[in-house]
Nucleic acid binder design. Structure first.
Lengths: 235, 235
DNA sequence: TACAAAATAAACTGACCAGTCTACTATTAA
DNA sequence: TTAATAGTAGACTGGTCAGTTTATTTTGTA
């Protein structure tokens, strides 16, 4: 139950709060992690796993502790509340998402439009794997929590909002590249297009989860190129 | 707490399970409703309101009963479970959505592309009103429940899936009209485009809810025309 | 008016909720 | 070695959860 959904490297911090997508790496070796930090990490991993496969409300602190083999006293030693834990889970989720999907997909070895194609393939493969593993398409872990918790927990809502911003900057970066490469209109509003891409991606994952069918991702996500307006392309 | 979110007319059944969007009206006067049926309706309305403004899990049977001024015994007289109630709430939600937004927006007095513009305006105005009323953008009540419950309650997931199908048929209908009118490509796959529209709409509402900002709807939803590929249009 | 069915009231399960508390045991640094 | 700090253990709180049960009242119909 503690295998991470994304392949996960410890303690790599990526800063997307600046528009430039410079990456800062604070390399730390796993073995340096103290016993306490390992316990905390187990709690974060269990919580992430359980909440993603079910929901925030359906997973209790007790169950997270049991899964992580940690006592309740320890839980509240590391986290002030379930909500505070969730905010940290979301941060971890963002790092994993950027590292294991966005950065590889949008690496600059291909043309911007090809990067999008690779992104679509990764997103599809990811949902296929999730369905094999859990029996359900789980969609986007951030979108899921956002819709469930936005009206109930302002800290969580804000956190998801900033996560979306981080992803947004990744899209802006590729779209700016596309503009430079002449793949899209010179007067395209890349900032607005990035928001559009994010929204469409979330929507496709929502529908895929509802239908419990990863093929929805494969079928619908390519339409993102229409949204962006890549020149000379028919999906 | 019992004022419906959508203006609601009783007992009008719209059949969108057939691709033709013929409407069957079973007109029933309110006063014919028996006292028991009124109680049931109060439970449905309270549940809809409370679950939309918060979430499925955060609203308990007890709270629904209190809001509807109904005793727990009565609740379980009308509904076999909270899940069964929710399925009926979803059905009611679909009817209201079709009646108060989709049918008026996509009425055939305008060209298909103009109907979409009207739809966007309605969707935007609706979220503005919701935010005024609750202090929060609540997004799509079906999408919300879908993401929260799809992996936990198969009946609810299936119900949302069929609701999405009903909405899908409405979109197919307009898109077919657009094809006939020559507003889109003659070889456009209207069925696939309808799915794309649905996904994008859900995505935009998800982002709007996350940012708690109805303006997101106004800004992003118009891009749907790019997705559809209306000829000679720049958003 | 009589009677069955529909509806309501309210107390009651047993399980679980997030979070607290106190006592205990490692770990670290002086 | 000592003392402080970090981490762990697990019982416990008051409250809520979905759902049950039994008795009673209201309603429609014959």
């Amino acid at each position: 139950m503690n295998i991470s959904i994304f392949s996960y490297k410890q303690n790599i911090k990526v800063d997307f709060t600046e528009r430039s997508t410079r990456i800062k790496l604070y390399a730390k070796v796993n073995s340096i992690m103290s016993k306490g930090q390992e316990t905390k990490q187990r709690l974060l991993d269990s919580a992430q796993q359980l909440m993603y496969s079910r929901s925030y409300s359906d997973v209790g602190v007790q169950e997270i502790c049991k899964d992580a083999k940690v006592q309740k006293g320890s839980f509240y030693h590391f986290f002030s509340s379930k909500s505070a834990l969730t905010v940290e889970v979301l941060e971890q989720l963002k790092m994993q998402m950027i590292e294991s999907i966005l950065l590889p997909a949008f690496a600059k070895d291909l043309t911007p439009s090809r990067r999008f194609e690779r992104f679509i393939e990764y997103a599809y493969q990811h949902q296929v794997q999730i369905k094999e593993q859990y029996g359900y398409v789980l969609g986007c872990p951030m979108g899921n929590i956002a819709l469930e918790m936005s009206t109930q927990d302002e800290e969580i809502r804000k956190k998801v909002e900033t996560l979306f911003e981080s992803i947004f900057y990744v899209f802006v970066d590729v779209l700016d590249d596309a503009k430079k490469a002449g793949e899209i209109d010179q007067d395209a509003d890349t900032s607005e297009l990035a928001q559009v891409c994010l929204a469409y991606g979330e929507g496709v994952l929502l529908v895929a989860k509802t239908k419990n069918d990863p093929e929805v991702v494969k079928q619908l996500l390519p339409y993102v190129s229409k949204l962006i307006g890549f020149k000379g392309q028919n999906i």
